[in-house]
Design a binder for these strands. Structure first.
Lengths: 218, 218
DNA sequence: GACAAATTGTCAGGATGCTGTCAGTTTTCT
DNA sequence: AGAAAACTGACAGCATCCTGACAATTTGTC
């Protein structure tokens, strides 16, 4: 399941998206109003978490803009502004929920679940490419109909590859995503990880682009 | 649009229902847990506003009771208890929103609107998965036609698993659900509990997802 | 209220599996 | 050929998880 997180505070955005990814979501991060408004493919998001305080405009404008364009994706507002006027304005502008910072991650997750339940019921939470299907919620993987057993890191790596199937993923990017909190990791760790994943899904599924990175072939 | 308001405080109940009627709703008022649980025609309600503090029981019980009976009407919890544990528990028990008193009427109204906007089917609250059937009301369990003897905690745990069959349940979530009022519990308690449950329903019914939690396999 | 039975959390020790590092080897490019 | 980049098997540290035993608590019965 894919989420869009709109949050200008880099530190908070990073912490949040890390925890969300840990919970099994694929998370995209937008940091400005313009970036958010021009985001492609909103319809494929399972939900949007929207911070109101943006550097170049008000999140409420983004919200109105989206709803005017018939974007029906569930939107959860996350903000420090907690007055009832703000809540009323946000909910009436088309938000589905309104959470005041600071908030426990557990509560946020519970509210997301409530959103999914109410919105689609059967969320289409699967990402597939090249005969491989990942279900981030159940955290299961299938290849050609058979179940795959993947460790946590392997699963995250494969998610990244499938998310960017066909594109070249530089080692630096992979390190960034896999070891966000600790950048001291040897680049060799990624090579080992890729090797282990290759052993499970087939050597030729991940091509090496010498000097640039890896590419998941569809 | 018809609403059911469950609220034991007569004064607040009257004020609220008056304003709601003023806003164009038809409002029914229940003041006790028993009255609420036996209310007919819940399916015809557009939404239910539920106060947790009831004289003869906990509103959470009413909520679970309804959801067990496949009442799919949107439910908004209205309560003075505002801890994040309460919110998580409420939302996971099947509530669609959670509002902490005191609250401005305008916010309540906006949240009701948001609830109506998200009309959609509720997903599985089926107490039935993988050959195991739970009856939350009678508190009985069956597996492959034979009766299961489960202790209280085992039953609650299995309910959680079945409620989220196929999904990963992090240990932290389980602790929150099982020991909501007392967070001092060792995570090992859950491991032991899972072990005991496994002995009764079969080792492989509950898969361990190392580092993330447990998953009930369907 | 007293006793027995069942339930449930805690503890300690052991088993398991994940993951990064290392060293040595292989591949690839010029 | 030589150097840089990538691969691989082995390994150790570590976190996680399991299990049996025990004690505390709750529940049931008389």
């Amino acid at each position: 399941m894919r989420l869009l997180l709109v949050e200008d505070d880099v530190e908070l955005g990073r912490r949040l998206s890390d925890r969300l990814r840990g919970a099994g979501y694929a998370v995209d991060l937008a940091t400005t109003r313009v970036e958010a408004e021009l985001w492609p493919d909103l319809h494929h998001m399972a939900a949007i978490i929207l911070d109101l305080g943006l550097p170049d405009g008000d999140g409420m404008q983004v919200l109105s803009h989206w709803r005017a364009q018939r974007v029906e994706t569930p939107i959860l507002i996350l903000t420090a502004r907690g007055s009832w006027q703000d809540k009323v304005e946000g909910l009436n502008a088309g938000a589905d929920d309104f959470v005041v910072k600071p908030v426990r991650f557990e509560e946020l997750q519970a509210r997301l679940h409530a959103l999914f339940r109410r919105h689609g019921g059967r969320a289409d939470n699967a990402m597939c490419a090249g005969g491989i299907t990942l279900d981030p919620v159940a955290r299961t993987a299938m290849m050609d109909g058979a179940a795959l057993t993947l460790s946590k890191q392997e699963f995250r790596l494969l998610s990244l590859f499938i998310d960017h199937a066909g594109q070249i993923m530089p080692q630096a990017d992979l390190i960034e995503h896999l070891y966000a909190l600790d950048d001291s990791r040897d680049h060799n760790a990624v090579e080992v990880l890729v090797g282990r994943l290759r052993r499970k899904i087939g050597r030729d599924r991940i091509a090496t682009v010498r000097g640039l990175g890896y590419r998941f072939v569809k």
